[in-house]
Every structure is written in C-alpha cells, then in structure tokens.
Amino acid sequence: MDWLNAILQGTLLGGLYAMFAAGLSLIFGVMRLVNIAHGDLIVLSAYLALTVAVGLGLNPMLALVIVVPLMAAIGYALQRLVLNRTMGDDILPPLLVTFGLSVIIQNALLTVYTADPQKLNAGAIETASVPLGPLTVGIMPVIVFAAAVGVIGLLQWMFYHTALGRAFRATSDRQDIAQLMGLNRAHVFGLAMAICLAVTALAGVFLGMRTSFDPAVGGTRLIFGFEAVIIGGLGNLWGTLAGGVILGVAQTVGAKIHPGFQILAGHIVFLLILAVRPRGLFPRMD
C-alpha cells in the first residue's frame, strides 16, 4: 500500500515537473532556445507571488492574477531587449547570456529576500485531503496536477488551433519565409517567451505552495524540467507530461527506498532512458 501511495504522490508531483518543462518545451520548439535561467525565473515568480500575497494580504492563488501577466511582460521584454540579440546559428551566445542571467537573478533574489527559506501560505487547503479507496490524496497536489493537465491542453490547443500557434509553427519551420508573411520574428519570439514565462509563473506559485524555496533552488528546477522534456521526447507536450510523471514517480519511489535517494533516483532514471531511448519515449521533433 505504501508503494501504491508513493506512485500516486509521484504522479501528482509529476504534474508540477511537467509545468516546469512546458515552458522550456515551448521556447525550444519555436526558436530552438534553451534558457539556462528558466529555473531561476520559476523561483523569481514564487518570490513575486510572496511579495504580492504578503503585501496585499492575498491568497497566493489570487496573486497569480498579478504575477502571471507580470512575468509574461518580463518575458516579452527580456526576449526583445536581450535574447533576440543572441539568436543565430551559434549556440554559445544564448547559452552564456542566459547563464549570466541565471547568476544575476539568483544573486538579486539573495540581496532582496536573503537566503532564508520561504513558503507561500495558501491556508487550510494545503493540508486538506480526501480519501481515495485505501489511500488519501491531498487536495493541493491534485489541484497542481489538474492545472498542469489544463496548461498543457491549453498550450496544445494554442499551438495547433489558433493563429498564434500557426505563427509559432511557421516561424519554427522557416524564419525568413515567415517574415515574408508579415510576421515579425522578433515579436513572435517575444510572444513565445511571454507565454513561456506565464506558464513559469504558474509553476513558481505552485512550487511555493507545495514546498519551501530559497534563491538557490532554481538550478534543480531547470534540471527537473529538462529531464521531463527529454524523457517525454522533444516537441511533444503530452509526452512532457508523461516525462514529468515518470520523473516524479522515480523520485517518490526512490525516497521510499532510502530518503537520501530521492533526487538521485530521478536523475538515474533519466540517464537510463537517455541510454536506452536517446530520443525520449514519445519523440516528435528531430
């Protein structure tokens, strides 16, 4: 029964990881950009939510109304002002610039918020749970998982059924020809990053409600998201959700075997899948 419980908890945790991954997956799909600062932006969102929630006395869930558009705006500006200048055939500039950004965000958070762990307090809902057969599930993890499914479904729909998604796919295929259709590449990339950081904001707030966080935890979140993307297969959003779930289950089952084994178990499963299925379980993109 304990094992079943571990698998259930891991599955729900996987939803959070899929949210870390969805934004990464989107910007890689549209502009082949890998943002090393992605995890730090997740943590930045959690801190912004903390400031909004404490400052205005709001529930962190309501703080999303401010943090999501704010992060989207930051994403658009970041892309237009900084990252677009690094886009090209050479992978070094975007990598090193986002790496520098990661260090800047981490240290800025340290300066403003100190290294003390913080948590977003969502009230009674945090501890509420419902029985599910012989198991109990927390309401909060279920909400997070449902949100992840919702976000991925929405992104999928946006990508394949809206004008914006069409513009993303066209730009991803042939940047120059998309430009001939009147699509300004710089703007399209800005929109992709805005959506990425909107999802990131959601992920950050849920992270902050589930566990405590400090300025240094961003790197690990980037790695979890990245592992979910690679396990699921590049370019497949539903695959990313599956990747997140596999990673989450590996971690909770690993923790069950030995508490010090939790994160390591996730990494090992990732490396095993990389060894056996280098293109992930459900690849769609070359």
């Binding site: 066209a170 295929d173 042939r174 020809i177």
Partner: peptide, 11 residues
C-alpha cells in the same frame, strides 16, 4: 513566391 517554394512543413 520564393524559389524552391519553401512551404511551411508543419502546416
């Protein structure tokens, strides 16, 4: 209409 057509393959 560019040389080589260059359609968007994902569309």
């Amino acid at each position: 209409v560019p040389e080589g057509r260059l359609l968007f393959q994902s569309l």
